[in-house]
Design a protein around this nucleic acid. Structure first.
Lengths: 197, 197
DNA sequence: CAGCATGCTAAACACTTGTTCAATCGTCGG
DNA sequence: CCGACGATTGAACAAGTGTTTAGCATGCTG
């Protein structure tokens, strides 16, 4: 069967997968080339350097993620980043893993991404305040940040969470269990006795 | 002034600092040796290999962290990991950064650490339930995991949070602002109108 | 057809990597 | 004093790194 993607795209996708798995420093240009079935020289020919490849993957992942976010909002889901990723991305996608690295390592791409997400979080909180679903809190900036990082924590610690509760929190089943609990706590705090189903 | 730590400890501490900063793969044995003011050969002499050094740093960081946790509990703070670290560790310590890598990368040390923290979180939740401060929720495992990862998110995304709210959430000032908001949400949910100071 | 850009490879480059080894230094027990 | 032993170094090693270069097809354009 014929390869329909350009080999440039194949290299980019394999780099994305490997970088997400072992980190950029942990993967050599030769390993990316081998995974993509091309020569090391071609990688440099297309992207200028390993750093150039990393930047392209950064841009690509951010673009995919923003598209995913936009479509999730349009599709009328809740404002959860985790839910958007789980719903829109194919199973086994390397995008969540790559985003984790982007957000925790330093670098301009991750910084800008987080800043944008924070703005979205602020707007989401403002919207909830307007519709009476929430209070701005004593410190609205911190409240918006709190909501954002709690959401992102599920992505960053996905594997660890799966190890202890037994289900991938970014799967459909996991997201439902997780979302129920989040809704309960955000709705009425830890003390509230929830109605029995 | 005389160097009182053994050079083995100096190497370990510099490795800890550099590994936390740039990742294990991003730091060479020679760089660790240079930072510690010794020869590359000595690093191997003491730790067997770079991998041996990493394992030693893993063990050391976990030991420091568990001591910090224990003392924070004894000191009667809340059950927050973030608060314990901020209170007990010297300013500028590389331990939080190293722990972030330990928890997000895979590896046995991080897995075991998270598992242990999860057990503590379950016990803490159980204690709160017993004293009437919380409900087990419909899904107590998920609730315990939710509380844990929200706590850890502050450590993992520390720098990013600082960038958007302007204060290090692991500093004294930052912890107070953050803790207030957490307490409010956990206490009564997002909707509750908090008393005006 | 000639010519030229494009996608691609194989080989080689200089350099860095983790690790080994023989040789020194310093200190301490007999 | 002296032998031994741990700490330490400098030099060397093979292997792997990112990158460069020359060349080879292939296909499009004049």
């Amino acid at each position: 069967m014929a390869e329909d993607r350009t080999s440039r795209a194949v290299v980019r996708d394999e780099a994305l997968r490997l970088f997400a798995e072992r980190g950029v420093e942990g993967v050599s240009v030769r390993q990316v080339a081998a995974a993509a079935g091309v020569s090391p020289g071609l990688v440099v020919h297309h992207f200028g350097s390993k750093e150039g490849l990393r930047e392209e993957v950064d841009r690509y992942v951010v673009a995919v993620f923003e598209k995913v976010l936009k479509e999730a909002v349009a599709g009328g889901s809740s404002g959860s980043v985790a839910e958007a990723m789980a719903g829109q991305l194919p199973e086994g996608s390397a995008v969540p893993g790559y985003l984790s690295r982007l957000l925790t390592a330093d670098g301009e791409a991750g910084r800008a991404l987080f800043r944008g997400l924070f703005e979205l979080s602020r707007q989401a909180l403002a919207g909830m305040v307007e519709s009476g679903m929430a209070t701005p809190g004593r410190d609205p900036l911190v409240r918006a940040a709190f909501l954002l990082v709690n959401d992102l924590a599920v992505v960053l610690l996905r594997r660890r969470i799966q190890e202890v509760i037994g289900v991938d929190p970014l799967s459909a089943a996991g997201l439902e269990r997780w979302g129920d609990e989040v809704l309960a706590v955000y709705g009425g705090g830890l003390r509230e006795r929830e109605e029995t189903r």
